[in-house]
Design a protein around this nucleic acid. Structure first.
Length: 216
DNA sequence: GGTAAGATCAGC
DNA sequence: CTGATCTTACCA
């Protein structure tokens, strides 16, 4: 196990650098409802070695999803979502947070998967610094805004190609399978289209944005 | 041009 | 539960 993976992280699956490989572009050329659960246990990595395993995602389904930024069509803000699949859509929200999505599907543009939580697996000291030296590992990347802060994802990375990883952020498969039966729930923090169970997560992970038995 | 709401988070 | 903080989109 890498030295940067602390004992507190023992419940997780450390990355195996030799096995890390790119995803096929075709992986993203599907409906985000299919892509999202398949993204669980994939590895998001910044250029400087900060890495986290995806433990929570949500699908946003464009013109058939009133909760999606892209619901009403292309704008300056969401333009990346209408671009090529496999790229990163980063947006700024609530006056202080960034959130990151993997752009999906090629039949109809404007779809994506929001990455909501990571299990930190490498570069953890850098993540801590970026997060203001937060102590708790389970609060380091447990939310869409937190993980962006931890990995240094901001508007400069909007449009970055996650497949090639050449723009400072990449998404990799290290051989870890997604859960055979991922847990799902309603999406968090939205006020419209709440009827869909389009949030998927690794059951029991301590790194989720909502811990078990908390609800609001 | 004005404004309300927002795919959130930290602190009380 | 609330305040922070500011961009965007929508409406006039």
């Amino acid at each position: 196990m890498p030295a940067s993976v602390s004992p507190e992280n023992k419940a997780g699956t450390p990355v195996t650098p030799d096995l890390m490989h790119r995803l096929d572009r075709a992986f993203f050329e599907r409906d985000p409802v299919d892509v999202a659960p398949q993204l669980l246990n994939k590895v998001l990595a910044s250029a400087d070695g900060r890495m986290g395993r995806i433990v929570e995602v949500e699908a946003y389904c464009g013109s058939r999803d009133p909760a999606a930024h892209s619901f009403r069509g292309k704008t300056r803000r969401n333009a990346t979502m209408f671009g090529a699949p496999g790229h990163l859509y980063v947006y700024f929200t609530y006056g202080m947070h960034f959130c990151a999505n993997a752009v999906c599907w090629d039949d109809e543009p404007g779809m994506g998967v929001l990455i909501r939580a990571l299990e930190p697996v490498a570069g953890i000291e850098r993540m801590r610094e970026a997060r203001g030296d937060i102590a708790s590992l389970s609060l380091l990347c447990s939310g869409p805004g937190r993980l962006c802060q931890a990995l240094g994802i901001d508007r400069k990375l909007d449009g970055a190609d996650l497949v090639s990883g050449t723009h400072g952020i990449g998404l990799y498969d290290d051989g870890a399978e997604p859960p055979a039966e991922p847990a799902s729930s309603e999406r968090i923090g939205i006020s419209r289209a709440t009827e869909h169970a389009w949030r998927w997560f690794v059951a029991g992970s301590p790194h989720l944005s909502r811990k078990p038995s908390t609800r609001r």
